[in-house]
C-alpha cells in the first residue's frame, strides 16, 4: 500500500483527496523576487503538489490598488476556470470604492467566492467604522471573509480585534489568516473556542511543530482551513505539513478540502 509518506517523499501528488487552497495571492511583491508569481506559474506549482483549486487575491490589491488587483484576479479566474477562484480585495480607507468592487466582482463573476481584508498592509483597523458597509455586504450574503492576523505587533488586525469583529458579524464565516502567526496558535484556539464562526488557517512560512495536531485536538478538524499564500510563499511545504501530520484521514480530508466545500459552493464552476 502506498502511503502519504511514500507519495510526499516521492514528490507525487496525494491521491484520493481533493486539495483546495483558500489563502493564496497572485503577482509580484515588493519585498522580494518571486520567480513563479503569475497564474501559469501558480498552476504549475499546484499541479506538481496536487492542489486542485485555489482562491486568489492579488498582492497589488493588498499593497496598493484594490481595483487594479481585482482586475488581475478576475482575469486569472477567467483564464483558469475550475482551478483559480477569486477573493475580492477591499480596503477600509476606500469604503465606497470597496463596496463598488464587491458589487462588481460578485455580480460579474460567479467564481469570486470570498472577501479578503489585510488590516496590516492597509493600516486600516478591521473595527474602523468605514469597514461596516463592507461587512454588511458580506454578512447579508453569508460570505467567507479572510483576514490577515498576527498575535502581536499588529494594531490593525491582531487576533483579539479579529475575534471582536467576528462576534459582531455572526453570519460571516471568518478565516483567521495565519492563525495569528507562528506564536499565535494557543490564542487562536482560545478565540475559536469562543466563536463558532472563526476558522483557523494553516498558512505560514514558520511552521510550528505540532500545530496541526493541536488545532485538530482543540477545536476539531472541521474548523481548520488549508492555505498556502501561493505564490507569496511556495505552496509545496503545506502539503507535507498536513499530509504527514499525526491526525486521522478524516481530519486530513476535512482540512484539505472538506471544510472548503462546506463553506463555499464550487459546483458549476469547472
Amino acid at each position: 500500500m502506498t502511503t502519504y509518506f511514500d507519495l510526499i517523499h516521492g514528490g507525487i501528488p496525494l491521491s484520493g483527496v481533493e486539495i483546495i487552497d483558500l489563502h493564496a495571492h497572485l503577482g509580484p511583491a515588493r519585498f522580494m523576487h518571486i520567480p513563479a508569481n503569475d497564474p501559469a506559474g501558480m498552476i504549475e506549482a499546484m499541479d506538481l503538489c496536487g492542489i486542485d483549486k485555489t482562491v486568489v487575491s492579488t498582492t497589488v490589491g493588498i499593497d496598493a490598488d484594490i481595483v487594479l488587483g481585482n482586475n488581475s484576479m478576475l482575469e486569472a479566474v477567467r483564464s483558469y476556470r475550475g482551478r483559480l477562484y477569486g477573493a475580492c480585495m477591499v480596503n477600509g480607507h476606500y469604503p465606497e470604492l470597496s463596496l463598488d468592487e464587491l458589487h462588481r466582482c460578485f455580480s460579474e463573476e460567479k467564481d469570486v467566492k470570498m472577501v479578503k481584508v489585510h488590516p496590516f498592509s492597509t493600516f486600516c483597523n478591521i473595527k474602523d467604522s468605514r469597514m461596516k458597509g463592507i461587512f454588511r455586504f458580506a454578512s447579508d450574503r453569508r460570505l467567507v471573509v479572510l483576514v490577515h492576523t498576527w498575535l502581536d505587533n499588529d494594531l490593525y488586525g491582531n487576533q483579539d480585534i479579529f475575534a471582536e469583529i467576528a462576534r459582531d458579524y455572526p453570519d460571516i464565516q471568518w478565516i483567521m489568516g495565519h492563525s495569528g502567526g507562528p506564536y499565535g496558535s494557543q490564542h487562536a484556539v482560545e478565540l475559536a473556542q469562543k466563536s463558532d464562526n472563526i476558522l483557523l488557517d494553516t498558512t505560514l512560512s514558520m511552521t510550528p511543530a505540532g500545530q496541526i495536531e493541536f488545532f485538530v485536538s482543540e477545536i476539531g478538524s472541521e474548523r481548520v482551513i488549508f492555505g498556502t499564500d501561493n505564490p507569496f510563499l511556495n505552496p509545496r511545504p503545506q502539503i507535507g505539513r498536513i499530509g504527514l501530520a499525526d491526525i486521522s484521514q478524516r481530519d486530513r480530508v476535512n482540512i484539505f478540502s472538506g471544510n472548503a466545500h462546506r463553506l463555499i459552493d464550487f459546483s458549476g464552476s469547472a
Binding site: 510526499i8 517523499h9 503538489c49 511552521t207 500545530q211 509545496r236 503545506q238 507535507g240 505539513r241
Partner: peptide
C-alpha cells in the same frame, strides 16, 4: 529548524520541486 518547526514542510518543499532527482 526542528524541533521548533516541523520537518514535514521542508521535506515537501524539496520533494515537490521541479528540479531533477540528482539536484534534489
Amino acid at each position: 529548524n526542528m524541533p521548533q518547526y516541523t520537518g514535514t514542510a521542508a521535506v515537501s518543499l524539496l520533494t515537490y520541486s521541479a528540479i531533477d532527482r540528482t539536484a534534489k
